[in-house]
Nucleic acid binder design. Structure first.
Length: 731
DNA sequence: CTTGAGAGGTTTTTT
DNA sequence: ACCTCTCAAG
């Protein structure tokens, strides 16, 4: 073999020592602690390529698991560029995508109909409301959203209703709803996201031959973002790995920011123990940021107790100092950011290389307002995705009825949309009949209306769906989608609406999505008899649920990137602005009520800081509009956690009394209207208290004899203090 | 069936 | 402040 042309050598070229070690580890379970910007995806893909190229395993024997479709796609693209050979035999996808695939192939053993449909969160919520209505449960005592959270977190722990502890009447009732909901889903042939995983887990654990089949197949299992796995996902991996296969787990405990949705960082420690991990490889060299930025990130995360321990370093220089700006208020902060961006853009930095990050979505409004005034193009991430739009969901509901009439959720969505005169009363009658004959609503509707009769009302609806089902036979997927959007009357309905233009365009886009779906050659899922397990339509519907599509259309244009810190994970930018660094906002107030909440907020800050390559701006405002009220905050503790030497303060407004100079027109009830003379503190005045520390006066009440002030002490919270007793010092 | 007033609730998000 | 949902009137 000549070194020059040896493909393996080329593959491993340019890896640092630690990366190389990780990529070429022997057949043993391993944990790769991959810091931000340490080349994590590269290691993961190179590992796969190396395993294949050195002949240790064929693509057929590899299972690669990610959390998002985007990550799965990127991995396959990069792998395709590395390897000249076909990797079709490899299974790569999200937990949910892979479970869907397994359940389709073994739907009989999993006791699911071949065309089972997947409920997204909105569908699931409406299904829960339906169950609760049938059970006559007060939705004030049991808010459906809470029930949804309960059911999902039970399932994510791997628990069925019968296995859940319930000692008081309230939790017993919750458990009953859970049980009834699952029964209803089974009756309708639908599964929610958590169910995909749980059902798949149960299938593998109860069916020895299926389990052993996959255990023999997947010798190498690779998992990305391991710190985000929940209990059930961990158990699922453990089951698939069996005793002989090895798991290559890549993750970063410092970037675990999804505990609120069930992620257990603890899985990393459990993994080390359960899989007898001999190899923990730390990737600590960062290729993204200058050292000032990394030092700041390291300094912040050092304040966390529960860590596996890791310190990022770079061979790049110090770079620019971290810029801190203190605004009078949120508007001032936004104006500052916009001015800086204008200057940066003039210097030649592309707008798409600049990110504005914030803790919560509500903060984007004021930024958008100022950007709009300045005429700067921007793109906001978040909000509705393509397949979540109402008109698209309506069209999909008709398609779901074509595939499976028993899908009550779909039926209820469109039985009277476009309106055809089926009101609440007829619906109630229908539901009553369905209950009596223990059938789906569609069967009840057929019993009532026979073959139906074209026109309005229930008969019209039954006739319509039957017509769709008949006419769609033999059509291509795209033709079926077109048929459904047209026959349903959705097109006419939006065409008649003068604001329906966009919606009509989205229906066309749905047809295009169907064409694209047909053209991409995905292997037909095949069941155990080698027969095609599902129609193209059913596959497309599953695709629509599992991959909700892009957040917004115009991706191409050079535009600023606005997003929450969560959404920024995994991305990098030349310049990053983190705004709203105030106690209560970031770290968020709510986090202080959760155990380890503050540590998660700090990891979030760590993620935010490590997004920046060259330049990092941190900003906060002395006051901001929140929930329709002016709020006075104090600077985030995270700012204090950054060594002064790394920082350049752009202005020094702080710590003087600024209540009166505030640009806000009369914050809180206009002080002029109240006995100003007896109020020694102005609203907005920074004060110090012997016990609570630094704070800001935010409100006051009472009269001269009995005056009380409300002070925001940030981490100590909001306190009412009686002026007579409280010892406050001006700052 | 459509419309508007009023109430309630606003951390983060993928599948 | 603002968005979503519900319920009663038109």
């Amino acid at each position: 073999m000549q070194a020059m042309t040896n493909p393996t050598t080329t593959l491993l070229d340019g890896l640092n020592e630690k990366q190389l070690e990780a990529v070429t580890l022997p057949h043993q379970s391993a944990l790769i602690l991959a810091g931000a910007g340490s080349g994590k995806t590269r290691v993961l893909t190179t590992r796969i390529a190396w395993l294949i190229q050195t002949g240790q395993v064929s693509p057929h024997g590899i299972l690669s698991v990610t959390f998002t479709n985007k990550a799965a796609k990127e991995m396959l693209t990069r792998l395709g560029a590395m390897l000249p050979i076909n990797i079709r035999g490899m299974w790569a996808g999200t937990f949910h995508g892979l479970c869907n695939r397994l359940l389709r192939a073994h739907h009989r053993e999993a006791e699911l109909p071949p065309t089972f449909q997947i409920l997204d969160t909105a569908d699931q919520l409406s299904a829960i409301k339906r169950v609760m209505k049938a059970m006559n449960i007060d939705d004030e005592k049991f808010p459906p959203k809470q029930v949804l959270g309960y059911i999902n977190s039970c399932k994510e722990e791997g628990l069925r209703a019968y296995a859940v502890d319930a000692y008081d009447s309230h939790s017993q009732r919750m458990r009953e709803i859970f049980e009834e909901y699952d029964k209803q889903c089974q009756r309708e042939g639908v599964v929610d996201f958590a169910e995909l995983l749980l059902r798949c887990y149960e299938l593998l654990s109860s069916n020895k031959s299926i389990r052993e089949h996959y255990q023999q197949r997947f010798k190498y299992i690779l998992v990305d973002e391991f710190q985000d796995t929940n209990r059930l996902q961990y158990l699922w991996l453990k089951l698939l790995a069996g005793t002989n296969n090895c798991i290559f787990a890549v993750g970063d405990d410092d970037q675990s920011i999804y505990a609120f949705r069930g992620a257990r960082v603890g899985n990393m420690r459990d993994f080390e123990h359960d899989f007898n991990v001999q190899n923990v490889v730390k990737l600590e060299q960062n290729y993204r940021s200058h050292s000032n930025i990394l030092d700041a990130a390291n300094a912040i995360i050092m304040h966390n107790r529960n860590r596996l321990g890791k310190n990022l370093w770079t061979s790049a220089g110090k770079g620019e100092p971290i810029r801190i700006y203190e605004g009078y208020n949120d508007k001032d902060e936004a104006v500052f950011i916009v001015d800086e961006i204008k200057a940066l853009h003039k210097e030649g930095i592309e707008l798409s290389q600049i990110a504005l990050l914030y803790r919560s979505n509500a903060q984007s409004r004021i930024l958008e307002h100022e950007l709009f005034s300045a005429g700067l193009p921007y793109r906001v991430y978040g909000g509705l995705r393509f397949f979540e739009r109402a008109e698209v969901k309506h069209a999909l509901a008709y398609l779901r009825l074509i595939a499976n009439g028993d899908d009550d959720t779909a039926l209820l969505r469109v039985i009277n949309f476009p309106t055809r005169g089926i009101g609440a009363r007829s619906l109630e009658q229908l539901q009553e009949l369905a209950r009596q004959q223990d059938s789906s609503l569609w069967q009840a509707a057929c019993a009532k209306a026979g073959d139906g009769r074209p026109g309005r009302g229930l008969e019209g609806f039954v006739a319509l769906v039957k017509q769709m089902q008949e006419e769609s036979i033999g059509l291509t997927l795209a033709e079926q989608v077109e048929l459904a959007t047209r026959l349903s009357g959705l097109r006419d309905h939006y065409a008649a609406d003068k604001e329906g233009e966009d919606r009509l365009a989205n229906l066309d886009e749905l047809v295009n999505a169907a064409i694209a779906f047909m053209n991409q050659d995905i292997g037909m899922p095949v069941d155990e008899n080698g027969e095609v397990a599902m129609s193209m339509l059913a596959q497309f519907l599953a695709h629509a649920s599992l991959e909700a599509g892009e957040h917004q259309a115009d991706v191409g244009r050079d535009a600023l990137q606005l997003m929450t810190v969560h959404a920024a994970k995994g991305l990098e930018f030349h310049t990053v602005f983190i705004s709203g660094l105030e106690e209560g906002l970031f770290p968020h107030e709510q986090s202080s009520y959760e155990s380890n909440g503050l540590e998660e907020e700090r990891r979030l800050m760590y993620v935010a800081v490590t997004r920046a390559r060259q330049r990092l701006y941190l900003s906060f405002a002395q006051s901001r509009m929140l929930h329709g009220q002016v709020r006075y905050g104090i600077p985030s503790r995270f700012l204090d956690e950054i060594p002064e030497a790394l920082v350049k303060r752009l202005n020094t407004v702080s710590n003087k009394s600024y209540g009166s100079t505030s640009q806000y027109p009369a914050a809180a009830p206009a002080p002029a209207a109240r006995p100003q003379a007896s109020m020694p503190w102005k609203i907005g005045q920074a004060v110090a208290h012997s016990k609570f520390g630094q704070g800001v006066v935010v409100n006051y009440e009472g009269n001269a004899n009995d005056l009380r002030v409300q002070v925001n002490f940030g981490r100590e919270g909001l306190k009412w203090l009686a002026l007579e007793y409280a010892k406050l010092e001006p700052l």
